[in-house]
Simulated scan of single mutants.
Amino acid sequence: MPMNPVVQAVIKAITLVQPDVASSWDAQRKVEDAAGKLTIADPRCRIDEITATADDGYEIPLRVFTPLDIDFSLKAGLHVNEDHRGTILYMHGGGWANGDVDFYSDACMRTALKLERRVIAVDYRRSPECRFPVPLEDCYAVARALFAGEVIPDADPEHIVLMGDSAGGNLTAGVGLLARERGEFRPRTQILLYPLTYNDHSESTLFDSVRENGEDYILTRQAIVDYIELYLRTPEDFHDSRFAPLIATSLADMPRTLVITAEYDPLRDEGEAFAARLDAEGSEVACFRMTDGVHGYFLYPSVLSLVRDTYRLIAHFLDDDPIPTEGKLPWTPLLGTD
């Protein structure tokens, strides 16, 4: 069913007035930094600032969002206890150049509360100041330290989930690949929200969604190309599977994976192709396409049904509950519905 024409017209208008990424990434970063400072803390979530050390000695800032159980009675007074069932290591989106933990604080608080899990957001170094593979290696170093008990001592490795959206989904998949190759730790679960997984976003790319959705739906094909140019150091990096995990020689023996794509996202098809390869090569994977979704929708207010439904999907997946696949649904089940 096509998108509502009025909504589509509004989205197209917003897309048309967006500045050019190649020349305005720094200005966009400043706007996002200012917006992030306006986030209002939720009293049901404790926020802590810690660090982890990168291989080159850089101290990577981390922000920890811990859901709380608050109980008050006149007789017993106020009791506040941590209330979580695991830990999510979150890698934010923003084309590797934009986004940071301030800009994502509202989404991380919401994720911690809705999924009843502690969230650790990685403030990895961004491009173009720090190009590939620095952001990926920062995320890997944090994950390695987290699994080793060096970030939060009580984090159970069996209940650590890697998660990211967009470029953060790309980094999440990259960490999963590096963990398999290096053998220093083994994530059990990862969640990728509309991830970039492929390297070719030209007009002749394999994927129709780049051509169909690459002009009028917030994230444009040219913006993807520009972000990649800001991120990579050399032409050889373009063919590196750490950057484009879909071109990896093997995707066997990867973590249990949930991939969520958006119907009107230019990255839709490559995310679904990544899930299909995981499935074909024996990894456990579920993949769903969100109806009427556009790239970046996860940051929208949680009152929107699209965001609420995404949390429903993630909660079902994390809790190993059957995911609804029949009747009128806000998503299209593609894989992992048996």
Rank of each mutant, 00 (worst) to 15 (best):
N81P: 09
D237A: 02
L177C: 14
G77R: 02
M163L: 08
M290V: 11
G214R: 00
A41R: 12
G36T: 03
P19K: 00
L38V: 10
G336Q: 01
R182Y: 15
A35R: 09
P330F: 13
H316C: 13
G95I: 11
D240P: 01
V259N: 10
T234M: 07
P301W: 08
D106I: 09
A262Y: 05
M109K: 00
P255T: 15
Y140P: 02
I47G: 03
D83L: 11
L115R: 00
G174M: 05
I323S: 03
E184W: 02
H201N: 12
L219H: 01
G36D: 14
R85N: 12
T51D: 12
E32M: 15
P2A: 15
T197K: 01
N81Y: 13
A35P: 03
Y198P: 06
E215N: 11
T189H: 09
D123A: 06
D309E: 11
P67I: 13
P2K: 03
S166P: 00
D208S: 08
T39V: 15
V80Y: 04
D216L: 09
R186E: 11
G293V: 05
T332H: 13
G94W: 05
Y231M: 06
E181P: 03
D321P: 03
A52P: 00
S283M: 06
D269I: 03
Y124H: 12
V64T: 11
R221I: 14
D240G: 03
D42A: 07
E263G: 04
E212P: 00
Y58G: 08
D269L: 00
L193T: 13
R277K: 02
R211K: 07
A286T: 10
T291R: 14
L196R: 10
R118C: 07
A280M: 11
G57P: 01
K30A: 15
D320Y: 15
F238L: 12
V101P: 02
A141D: 14
A167Y: 06
R118D: 09
F274R: 03
R131P: 01
Q28V: 11
T291C: 13
D20C: 05
S105T: 11
A76P: 03
L171M: 04
E229G: 09
G36I: 01
V151W: 06
Y217P: 04
D154A: 12
K75Q: 13
R312P: 06
G95E: 08
E150D: 12
V64L: 08
Y198I: 15
A54R: 04
S250A: 05
A27H: 10
E158Y: 14
I218S: 03
D102R: 14
A9E: 14
T172G: 06
T172P: 00
E281S: 02
D338M: 07
N213A: 14
S105E: 11
D319P: 01
F147L: 09
H159E: 10
M91Y: 06
C130M: 13
P128M: 07
A121S: 07
D123F: 02
L313T: 02
